[in-house]
């Protein structure tokens, strides 16, 4: 049987991808951030998962305002990096896992999460930057990736509770897949940042640190956090953090924190990374 063994949450700032693509990671501006990624890269390589379920958001790439799915799952064999206006990132194509992805789509819908099923889509920095952060520079990504996109661009995004419950449904659905797979769920976006308006550049480290602290042991507080709190306290675009709650919901209640890293700034953003692992199965 397949099983969610761990979760990784991380920011997906496009400038982090650009810093890697342009070879700037050793520069003094970027070095402290990338140094903090090393333990996470080693952890993921050692764990060697069979599949990553990537909970992320599209930024007007695969989807536009024409159609705005709240939750969508990519079931294709392959997803190419999107051109977001700068040309596509020079990173490998992402290979999907149609078997598990279709199983998830069916199972989630029958569990009352009405997913949009996507056969063709490109993937933008929201998906490729977390892969770059967690895997480093690669000729091929180390395992198949199932894109699961969440609308956080058009108000309203799904509530924190809905995101957490989706995570729980993902955990349950993965368990009913009949192949023996180690699955890691990524939650991406955040942390505090605002990209638009006169308030651009807002950072709230206190909010972020409390979020990191409560994600493992007190997710209930975060589940109940209304959208206005994210927007006011963590910046309009900080609302992306609801996607971390999908990851948290996909892990067991007693999951343990393995690693965290927090750094300000990456371009306009406070960046965070957290790794949670489920306890080993007791026989």
């Amino acid at each position: 049987m397949a099983r969610v063994v761990a979760g990784l949450a991380t920011s997906h700032v496009p400038a982090i991808g650009a810093a890697m693509d342009l070879g700037k990671t050793k520069e003094s501006y970027w070095k402290p951030l990338f140094d903090g990624y090393e333990p996470a890269r080693k952890w993921l390589a050692d764990l060697n998962p069979d599949v990553i379920i990537m909970v992320y958001n599209d930024h007007g790439s695969a989807f536009s305002l024409e159609v705005i799915p709240t939750f969508a799952i990519g079931v294709a064999e392959k997803f190419l990096p999107a051109d977001e206006g700068w040309g596509p990132r020079p990173v490998p194509a992402v290979h999907g896992h149609p078997g598990l992805a279709w199983h998830l789509a069916e199972s989630l819908i029958l569990n009352e999460f009405d997913m949009t099923i996507v056969n063709e889509m490109t993937v933008d920095h929201g998906l490729t930057v977390p892969l770059s952060i967690a895997c480093g520079e690669q000729k091929n990504w180390p395992c198949p990736v199932i894109p699961l996109s969440v609308n956080v661009v058009q108000y309203p995004p799904p509530t924190g509770k809905r995101c957490f419950d989706l995570g729980r449904a993902i955990r349950k659905s993965v368990k009913t897949y009949d192949k023996d797979l180690k699955v890691v769920v990524f939650g991406t976006g955040g942390m505090s940042h605002q990209l638009h308006g006169e308030r651009a550049g807002l950072i709230n480290s206190e909010f972020d640190k409390n979020f990191l602290a409560d994600l493992t042991r007190n997710p209930q507080r975060l589940i109940e956090l209304p959208h206005i709190e994210y927007v006011r306290e963590a910046g309009a675009e900080g609302i992306e953090m609801v996607m971390w709650l999908v990851m948290r919901g996909a892990l067991d209640e007693n999951a343990v924190e393995i690693y965290q890293h927090y750094h300000v700034p990456a371009s306009n953003t406070a960046t965070g990374l957290m790794i949670l692992e489920n306890q080993p199965l007791t026989v």
Partner: peptide, 20 residues
């Protein structure tokens, strides 16, 4: 958008960002 030169904005971010 926030009405300052990019260098000044970058310094603000390096110093921890715009406070809430």
């Amino acid at each position: 958008m926030s009405g300052v030169p990019e260098e000044e904005y970058r310094s603000m971010m390096m110093a921890g960002g715009r406070p809430v």
